[in-house]
């Protein structure tokens, strides 16, 4: 459970903003929104398994069945 997941999501965000701004300049607006939407989805998926992990550990710890 290292720090790299925070850097990974931050890198995805920055990459998405750069790519979408480049696409906006070149006139492909719908592609830019598509890229930013997929970046959000990818980072959500990354965080999702962490949330599931936290819920399972808390459930076992506090016997929250």
């Amino acid at each position: 459970m290292g720090i790299e997941i925070i850097f990974r999501i931050a890198a995805i965000g920055i990459l998405a903003s750069v790519v979408s701004s480049v696409l906006k300049q070149s006139g492909k607006d719908e592609l830019a929104t598509f890229v930013s939407l997929s970046a959000v989805i990818i980072s959500l998926l990354l965080v999702l398994d962490m949330v599931a992990d936290l819920f399972s550990t808390v459930r076992n710890l506090f016997s929250l069945y």
Binding site: I6, I9, I12, G13, A16, S43, V47, M50, L54
Partner: peptide
């Protein structure tokens, strides 16, 4: 640039601290 991904980063950071 991307407020929604910033929120996801803060969520991940909070999860790390909780872990």
């Amino acid at each position: 640039h991307k407020p929604e991904i910033a929120m996801i980063v803060s969520l991940a950071g909070g999860l790390m601290v909780l872990f």
